[in-house]
Amino acid sequence: MDIGYATARDKAGWWSLWQAYLDFYNQPLPDEISDLTFGRFLDPHEPMVLLVARDGDDIVGFAALVEHRSTWARNGYVYLEDLFVAESVRGKGAGRKLIEATVDHAKSRHCERVYWVTHDHNATARALYDKVASLPGLTTYFADM
């Protein structure tokens, strides 16, 4: 399994996993938003990056990263906004490799932190996260808009 930056040819493989990810979180999106998002991943002027896990020619996982400044650091942070691995390869190291590649990306950009959030009920993902990261005890809130 190889991890690398997405290219335009990866869109179809990402798309099917993206839809499964959105279904898992019960978050339907219009196709135009998904198209816009993928375009941002490929735009060198956007602070967004898509890493993909490849098993041969198949995309079997992805990590969507957003780099941003922080009021608490000289250099930026990387927010691992989305991480998803196909059910067929779960438990085979793809998630861990995507997280490691995210950290490598952040280091290459001189970022000072990589962080992410997940739902409390996501026990499968949390089992991995508990092995590779610390849990700071923060609670996420969303403003009513």
Rank of each mutant, 00 (worst) to 15 (best):
Met1Gln: 07
Met1His: 00
Asp2Asn: 15
Ile3Met: 03
Ile3Thr: 05
Ile3Arg: 01
Asp10Gly: 08
Lys11Ser: 13
Ala12Asp: 14
Gly13Phe: 00
Trp15Glu: 12
Ser16Asn: 07
Ser16Cys: 09
Ser16Leu: 14
Leu17Lys: 03
Leu17Asp: 03
Leu17Val: 14
Gln19Met: 11
Tyr21Lys: 11
Leu22Trp: 10
Leu22Gln: 11
Gln27Thr: 09
Pro28His: 04
Pro28Tyr: 13
Leu29Asn: 02
Asp31Tyr: 03
Glu32Arg: 09
Ile33Ala: 10
Ser34Phe: 03
Asp35Leu: 13
Thr37Trp: 00
Phe38Glu: 00
Gly39Tyr: 07
Asp43Tyr: 08
Asp43Glu: 02
Pro44Gly: 02
Pro44Ala: 01
His45Val: 12
Met48Gly: 11
Met48Pro: 11
Leu50Asp: 10
Leu51Met: 00
Val52Gln: 05
Val52Glu: 01
Ala53Met: 10
Asp57Pro: 06
Asp57Arg: 04
Asp57Phe: 07
Asp58Ala: 15
Asp58Trp: 09
Asp58Met: 14
Ile59Glu: 03
Ile59Tyr: 08
Val60Lys: 12
Phe62Asn: 04
Ala64Gln: 10
Leu65Glu: 00
Val66Tyr: 15
Glu67Ala: 14
Glu67Gly: 06
Ser70Gln: 05
Ser70Ala: 04
Thr71Arg: 10
Thr71Ile: 10
Trp72Ile: 13
Trp72Ser: 01
Ala73Gln: 15
Arg74Met: 15
Tyr77Gln: 11
Tyr77Phe: 04
Tyr77Arg: 10
Tyr77Asn: 06
Val78Ala: 07
Val78Asn: 02
Tyr79Glu: 05
Leu80Tyr: 01
Leu80Trp: 00
Leu80Pro: 03
Leu80Thr: 08
Glu81Met: 11
Val85Ile: 00
Val89Asn: 03
Gly91Asn: 13
Lys92Leu: 12
Gly95Cys: 02
Gly95Met: 00
Arg96Met: 01
Lys97Ala: 04
Lys97His: 13
Ile99Leu: 05
Ile99Ser: 04
Glu100His: 08
Ala101Pro: 05
Ala101Phe: 01
Ala101Lys: 06
Thr102Cys: 04
Val103Phe: 02
Ala106Trp: 06
Ala106Gly: 11
Lys107Ile: 06
Ser108Met: 12
Ser108Glu: 10
Ser108His: 10
Arg109Asn: 08
Arg109Tyr: 09
Arg109Ala: 02
His110Phe: 14
Tyr115Glu: 14
Tyr115Val: 04
Trp116Tyr: 07
Trp116Ala: 03
Trp116Leu: 11
Val117Lys: 15
Val117Ala: 08
Asp120Ile: 12
Ala123Thr: 13
Thr124Lys: 11
Thr124Ala: 09
Ala125Lys: 07
Arg126Gly: 05
Arg126Lys: 10
Arg126Tyr: 02
Lys131Thr: 06
Lys131Trp: 12
Ser134Gln: 13
Leu135Phe: 10
Pro136Gly: 01
Gly137Phe: 08
Leu138Ser: 14
Leu138Trp: 14
Leu138Met: 04
Thr139Phe: 11
Thr140Phe: 09
Thr140Glu: 12
Ala143His: 11
Ala143Ser: 14
Asp144Lys: 13
Asp144Leu: 15
